[in-house]
Simulated scan of single mutants.
Amino acid sequence: MLRIFIVACTLPLWGRAFDDPCNLEEYYSVAGFSKVTWFEANFICNSVGSVLATVRNYDQHQYMLNKVFLHGKVFGKKNFWLGATNLVESTYFWTWLSTGLPMTYAEWGKDEPSSDKTKKDACLVLKGDKFWHSASCEEKHFFICENVCLLNDTSLDQSVFI
């Protein structure tokens, strides 16, 4: 718990103050300063008025990749939690935590999601190969938050498939 407190307290040093998350211009904020579990990442994002990143279409995926890998020397091949999980339904159906909606777009890596084959609980990770992978929610990775005020921004949602 102390670790979460320390990480949450350092968020204002992230580049912008989080006094009013709706004044942020950033759609995604990349947290490459501390590895945490998926649950801890969710808590930290929520504590600053954000959610773990939701990616609903190809354009958003590319936008997020540009945001993360633009700083390749810093982030390199690190792994980042995203906001989907199969914990919502006992059928292991992937759902976005931010919206409660099923995942209708995906950029799965080869042989993924492996958790569907093993019938294990899992959370979504963007790996250094730029594809999505299922992983135990207890693993520790960096994470990407999404500005909740921009969550319904139509400029990035033009290609939503339902």
Score class of each variant (00 low, 15 high):
residue 133 H to D: 01
residue 61 H to E: 11
residue 57 N to A: 02
residue 15 G to E: 13
residue 111 D to L: 06
residue 60 Q to G: 03
residue 102 P to V: 06
residue 23 N to T: 13
residue 14 W to C: 14
residue 16 R to M: 12
residue 46 N to E: 15
residue 9 C to H: 12
residue 10 T to L: 14
residue 15 G to K: 13
residue 14 W to S: 15
residue 123 C to M: 05
residue 125 V to P: 03
residue 118 T to S: 15
residue 95 T to E: 05
residue 82 L to G: 01
residue 159 S to E: 10
residue 57 N to T: 07
residue 122 A to T: 04
residue 65 L to R: 07
residue 100 G to S: 06
residue 90 S to H: 07
residue 6 I to C: 10
residue 17 A to D: 14
residue 123 C to Y: 03
residue 79 N to I: 02
residue 122 A to V: 03
residue 67 K to Y: 03
residue 73 K to G: 14
residue 149 C to Y: 01
residue 42 N to D: 15
residue 106 A to C: 07
residue 145 C to P: 00
residue 51 V to F: 13
residue 20 D to E: 15
residue 60 Q to D: 08
residue 82 L to D: 04
residue 112 E to D: 07
residue 133 H to R: 01
residue 21 P to G: 12
residue 146 E to R: 03
residue 62 Q to L: 10
residue 131 F to V: 01
residue 159 S to F: 12
residue 68 V to W: 07
residue 56 R to H: 02
residue 39 F to D: 14
residue 108 W to I: 00
residue 17 A to W: 14
residue 62 Q to D: 05
residue 19 D to Y: 13
residue 70 L to Q: 15
residue 154 T to L: 09
residue 142 F to K: 01
residue 3 R to D: 10
residue 65 L to T: 00
residue 16 R to Q: 14
residue 75 F to T: 12
residue 3 R to A: 09
residue 85 T to E: 08
residue 128 G to K: 00
residue 11 L to A: 13
residue 34 S to A: 15
residue 116 D to R: 06
residue 32 G to L: 09
residue 148 V to C: 00
residue 143 F to D: 01
residue 9 C to Q: 13
residue 93 F to W: 07
residue 143 F to W: 02
residue 116 D to Q: 08
residue 144 I to L: 01
residue 120 K to F: 04
residue 118 T to N: 09
residue 150 L to R: 09
residue 52 L to Y: 09
residue 60 Q to E: 15
residue 120 K to W: 06
residue 161 F to P: 02
residue 40 E to S: 13
residue 75 F to W: 12
residue 121 D to W: 10
residue 65 L to E: 07
residue 28 Y to P: 05
residue 85 T to Y: 05
residue 156 L to D: 00
residue 146 E to M: 08
residue 99 T to C: 07
residue 112 E to H: 00
residue 93 F to H: 11
residue 120 K to Q: 11
residue 121 D to A: 10
residue 1 M to K: 10
residue 88 V to G: 00
residue 8 A to C: 10
residue 36 V to Y: 09
residue 111 D to A: 06
residue 85 T to V: 06
residue 142 F to G: 02
residue 137 C to E: 00
residue 29 S to L: 14
residue 11 L to G: 05
residue 150 L to D: 00
residue 146 E to S: 00
residue 100 G to H: 07
residue 71 H to K: 15
residue 34 S to Y: 12
residue 67 K to P: 01
residue 22 C to I: 10
residue 4 I to R: 13
residue 112 E to S: 03
residue 117 K to P: 04
residue 73 K to R: 14
residue 125 V to I: 07
residue 62 Q to T: 05
residue 68 V to P: 01
residue 99 T to M: 08
residue 98 S to A: 15
residue 132 W to R: 01
residue 132 W to D: 01
residue 106 A to N: 11
residue 30 V to K: 11
residue 65 L to C: 07
residue 55 V to M: 05
residue 114 S to T: 02
residue 99 T to R: 08
residue 142 F to R: 03
residue 71 H to Q: 14
residue 5 F to R: 10
residue 2 L to Q: 10
residue 160 V to Y: 11
residue 127 K to A: 09
residue 119 K to S: 09
residue 124 L to T: 03
